[in-house]
Nucleic acid binder design. Structure first.
Lengths: 333, 333
DNA sequence: GTGAAAGCGCTAACAT
DNA sequence: ATGTTAGCGCTTTCAC
């Protein structure tokens, strides 16, 4: 068994030095056309593939970016990942992905693990890092982007939108439609869900006319099924007074809608339903569900682009980016 | 700016040799408790993080696995990825993920790129690799698992289930329910969708009584919306004769169902609908949609486990694994 | 435009 | 149980 060919083997075959081969690979313009051709065919001949570890060690460039998301099962992050991989691909970067399952402690461990690969940048979800995690990240001294939400005290760069404001707006929309006893239905209760709840509460508090409100939450992960259960709970818990439900995401909203149909409640007449994240299904069910849309793919893409263009520059070289959101008003409200 | 500490720095601080520090990191049991403690605290003191590239270069172990999936937006692969990351995490492996967008050519490029990271194993979706890709993979001489479908000629290992047989079974189910003019509705038409179409056709051909059948396909990617459009098309294309629709996935099935409601067609009375992949929503809509379920998370997990346990062994050391599927009969048929 | 020498930070192999 | 030596395969630096 002949071991894998290396740079020297290619060099020997092409009748040049190793460094010339290296240059053909990373900076072809610095090599004359003749040699370049020779080298290229030698590479193809022996099926040479450059050893990334050696390259990374010598050049101190790992060619990887680290990404930490809280969940692989939440479709929301699919979209973000699509944007991330798109931009990484365009920049010839590999992605090292970690799923911290919404746990800051797991996130801390992941950070330590991923940093050992010497990523040239890191994308991290949200702003709820542990102190030690922040220390590690600062120490690593690489560009970093916190995504999804906005914060006044970013570790470095930041891109996202205000979940608080979006929730405030959609709640206000319910009130404007005449609903006077809205409920917030939330699952998981991660930081962004909490911000949505805060926005909901503030919108109620700010409303000039008197109105009641209800809150039904659980730490369980979101699912369509859970949406049905929580709808039941909120109706029972409000003594049938609740006339509108703001679900912290569209999974719950869909479940709530299906449950209403089963209970023969008319949406939006007996009860209004709105969600968050604007899944495709939300626009296509009957009645279509009002929801909050945000440019997730774009956010992922831009986060990576920010990393790539921040190379070399110091911290906070890029101002926080608000990607915004929009309330998609549909017939469920 | 003091540069990052390395092994020697830790060793000096702890008063030991570099290799001892290395051992504490990779094989603590080989070091006495006393030294281990000293080293551990030195590591923490100066915030040492091991340089992965150097480690990989010296040990010839990259600690990464390559994974290629055809789509990040298809929820199906989310589930598979969850299993993959789960098992990779348990085995202290990092994942390098590539999305080939259902293109064998992009897949080929991805393989070349990912191989340069010297992965210790590779997970690849399906069996439609280009010749050159197969050559690269064989040459790489690392454990490989083809996932999702089963094949008689795996490159190395294989885990999946028969999409042909699953489609055959669900079509037979339609026929057994008395439907005599079923249609196949397919999008994307990737290899596994083609297999489902083949199973559909064979089930029709094998049915003892005469029946008509229709096929409506498009190369467009699946979506709920497209499901509605294709339902329209198949009804028009069959002159209203079609009495059952087998959608190649649940996105389309949901769209078809929503469209039926809009058209005031009763499901399953006027028309039956069934899908593939068993999404959560399929079980919760009214009427619930008959679909094909398969253990996707488990498949991902086991694929990685197969890689990890195949280290060192030769090709085909593990027999192909059929994870099976089950038809979830619900009220839509 | 091309090459020679040195060394990136770690671990395998071999001592002790 | 611990240390010494050598070298992984590449790129940087500097020379020509």
């Amino acid at each position: 068994m002949n071991k894998k060919p290396n740079l020297k083997d290619v060099a020997k075959l092409a009748g040049v030095s190793a460094i010339t081969v290296s240059r053909v690979l990373s900076d072809p313009d610095k090599v004359s056309a003749l040699l370049r051709q020779k080298v290229d065919s030698a590479i193809r001949d022996i099926g040479y593939i450059r050893n990334h570890a050696a390259s990374a060690l010598a050049s101190k460039k790992s060619g990887v970016l680290a990404v930490i998301i809280p969940s692989l099962s939440n479709i929301v992050f699919n979209d973000v990942l699509q944007g991330i991989y798109q931009a990484a691909n365009a920049g010839n970067m590999q992605i090292l992905l970690g799923d911290c399952h919404y746990s800051p402690l797991q996130e801390e461990k992941l950070i330590a693990t991923l940093l050992s690969q010497a990523p040239e940048g890191i994308v991290i979800t949200g702003t709820a890092q542990t102190d030690y995690a922040r220390k590690l990240l600062l120490q690593a001294d690489i560009p970093l982007v916190q995504i999804m939400e906005l914060t006044d005290q970013p570790i470095d760069m930041n891109i996202g939108f205000s979940h608080y404001q979006a929730a405030y707006d959609i709640t206000q929309h319910l009130l404007q439609q005449g609903y006077r006893a809205p409920a917030f239905v939330g699952a998981r209760m991660d930081p962004r869900t909490q911000q949505r709840l805060a926005g909901f509460k503030q919108a109620i508090a700010d409303w000039p006319e008197p109105c009641r409100s209800f809150v039904q939450t659980t730490a369980q992960p979101s699912s369509i099924k859970l949406g049905g259960q929580l709808l039941q709970a909120v109706i029972a818990g409000s003594d049938n007074q609740c006339d509108a439900v703001f679900c912290c995401n569209d999974d719950l909203a869909l479940g709530a809608l299906f449950e209403c149909k089963r209970m023969n409640l008319s949406v939006p007449k007996d009860i209004a339903i709105c969600g968050f994240n604007d899944f495709e299904a939300s626009a296509l069910v009957e009645p279509a569900i009002t929801s909050v849309a945000s440019p997730r793919v774009e956010m992922g893409r831009r986060a990576v682009e920010m990393l790539l263009s921040a190379a070399g520059k110091g911290r906070h070289s890029v101002a926080p980016v608000d990607v915004g959101y929009s309330i998609r008003v549909r017939s469920s409200t």
